[in-house]
Simulated scan of single mutants.
Amino acid sequence: MTTERVTTERKTGVRRSTPSWWTHWAGGTALLIGLWCAVLLLLQAAIADFDTALFSLAVLFGLCVVWLAYTLIGLIRYRAFLISLIAPILVLGWIVVAKSGAVEAAAWRISQGPMEDAAANCADAEGGLYGIYFVHSVAEQDGGCLFTTDNDVDRAGYAYLPGGVPARPRVSYFPLDGPWHTFIIYS
């Protein structure tokens, strides 16, 4: 290609074809962002600890920075608009789903059956995986059964209270579904 032809193409606005390496990198980065958004939804459902959630958000941020670099190259050099929209659409979808409460509702529906089975024999139940919730301890208390999940500051988890919510200092119960409540025991 001669210098004259390159100049003419640039002046007339003829679009350069998008090279396959850029398409693969942009598509691959968008795919990784989408997969990582799915991981974040799973961590949200499983009530991940703060350090894990922070690390996961940092990874998503790093992937978005890489995506931004490739997108700028694609938009400026190749005018590749459509493939550049995939990652932002995935991230916006993740935000909508994460904020909608659908993740928590689905997680509870998956875990409710195993937790009800354990609550029926609360004295014999032990910590472990109940549905997708990791429970650190199970104890009979307040006329029901408390399933404690880890919280970095306070004890928190799920309570099966068929006799109603007891009045206890430094304990907050929040209704979940029928006799089930979430709780926080403040230090």
Rank of each mutant, 00 (worst) to 15 (best):
T3D: 13
T3Y: 09
E4R: 12
R5N: 08
T7R: 15
T8N: 04
T8V: 13
T8W: 13
G13S: 06
V14T: 15
R15H: 12
S20H: 05
T23M: 04
W25K: 06
G28N: 02
I33G: 01
G34M: 03
A38D: 02
L41S: 06
L41W: 05
A46Y: 01
I47Y: 11
A53G: 00
S56L: 10
V59D: 04
F61W: 14
L63G: 02
V65Q: 05
V66H: 08
W67L: 06
L68P: 06
T71S: 14
L72H: 07
I73P: 01
I76G: 02
R77I: 03
F81T: 10
F81S: 02
L85G: 14
A87M: 08
P88R: 13
L90F: 10
W94T: 04
V97G: 06
A98Y: 10
A98E: 08
V103Q: 08
S111N: 03
S111V: 06
G113Q: 14
M115E: 01
E116Q: 15
D117V: 13
A118C: 04
A118T: 03
A120Q: 02
A123Q: 11
D124T: 12
A125N: 03
G127R: 09
G127I: 09
G128W: 08
G128Y: 06
L129I: 04
Y130N: 02
G131K: 00
S137R: 14
S137T: 12
E140N: 09
G144T: 04
C145Y: 01
D150W: 14
D152F: 13
R155I: 04
A156H: 07
G157A: 10
Y158F: 15
Y160K: 03
L161M: 04
L161E: 00
G164W: 05
S172E: 10
L176K: 15
D177G: 07
G178F: 08
W180D: 12
W180T: 14
H181Q: 11
F183C: 03
I184G: 00
I184M: 11
I185V: 15
Y186K: 10
S187E: 08
S187I: 05
